[in-house]
């Protein structure tokens, strides 16, 4: 049971990430591979905040959000110049740059050695030490992000984003400042992935740069491709499938090397088959 609770924590963290990524990719059609970078910045904000600065968990979430908003604002301005596959490639580049900084800025991030001993959240004297309590808190945040997603999706803001996704030029002609809309949703999504990063850092209690590489951004992208673009339920289903897949493979009893490669082969095959037969994903509404 304890094992399933642990998996569920991971699942809820990746649901937050998938939901926030789907705001950018699904709602507004901008294929960002930079999500792992904001996830990482959020995680580092919590790690550094809780260990060296002595801040509380929730304060560090705010700190991570502030940093992510600032960075995403600048990065979003650069990215707003691009579309489609160019957007994807440039965002991948940004992810490599952030990873490089996390690895090399040793004074702040402790470089390759990583940061250990990250604490658990404390609310009014109650510390979330037990995994089930931690899971409850994580699910609460996931639910809030889910609600936010649905709310944006139905709001007039969301409708403009979807119009922009289908035809940016037309939306622009109709008098909407498309760059502004693209920028706002990108910043929001970055802030929300920072929250997921904070939960990850606190859950694992140790982080290092290798967790936040481009590979992770591609993994997150795979989650929402499998689950479904522009679908809140799809994001969660995608996270559930891709987080449990390696665990299911653990129990199949294949040799480890083969199991690990088989998992990669399944990821790859999922991507290819989805692209051939159902480019909008299982629950998706938008096709690239």
């Amino acid at each position: 049971m304890e094992y399933l609770i642990n998996l569920a924590i991971l699942f809820s963290i990746y649901s937050m990430l998938a939901l926030s990524l789907n705001m950018v990719i699904g709602m507004s059609g901008l294929v960002s591979l930079a999500q792992a970078a904001f996830y990482g910045i959020g995680a580092y904000a919590t790690a550094i905040g809780m260990t060296s600065l002595g801040l509380g968990f929730f304060t560090t979430i705010l700190l991570g959000i502030v940093i992510n908003v600032a960075i995403a604002f600048v990065v979003g301005k650069i990215l707003a110049r691009f579309q489609y596959d160019y957007y994807a490639i440039v965002s991948a580049g940004l992810s490599v740059i952030v990873f490089s900084i996390l690895l090399n800025w040793k004074k702040v991030t402790n470089g390759a050695l990583g940061i250990y001993g990250i604490g658990k959240p404390v609310v009014a004297g109650y510390a979330f030490y037990s995994n089930s309590a931690f899971l409850g808190l994580a699910l609460l945040f996931t639910a809030a992000i889910f609600a936010l997603y649905v709310w944006i999706d139905r709001s007039s803001f969301g409708r403009v984003l979807k119009a922009l996704r289908e035809d940016e030029r037309l939306t622009h002609v109709m008098g909407y400042k498309t760059k502004y809309y693209k920028s706002v949703i990108f910043v929001l999504s970055a802030a929300l992935s920072g929250i997921a990063g904070a939960f990850f850092a606190s859950y694992i209690a140790f982080i290092d740069p290798t967790t936040f590489q481009l590979k992770e951004g591609i993994f997150l992208f795979t989650i929402i491709i499998v689950g479904g673009l522009s679908s809140a339920v799809g994001s969660i289903v995608g996270a559930l499938i891709l987080i449990s897949l390696p665990e299911v493979l653990r129990f199949v009893g294949l040799p480890y090397e083969i199991a690990a490669q088989l998992q990669q082969i399944i990821y790859g095959a999922l991507l290819v088959l989805m692209m051939i037969f159902k480019p909008q994903g299982f629950f998706g509404k938008f096709r690239m």
Partner: peptide
């Protein structure tokens, strides 16, 4: 196996 990934090491 944890595939040299922190999240999988925890699981």
């Amino acid at each position: 196996d944890y595939g040299y990934e922190t999240k999988r090491a925890a699981v």
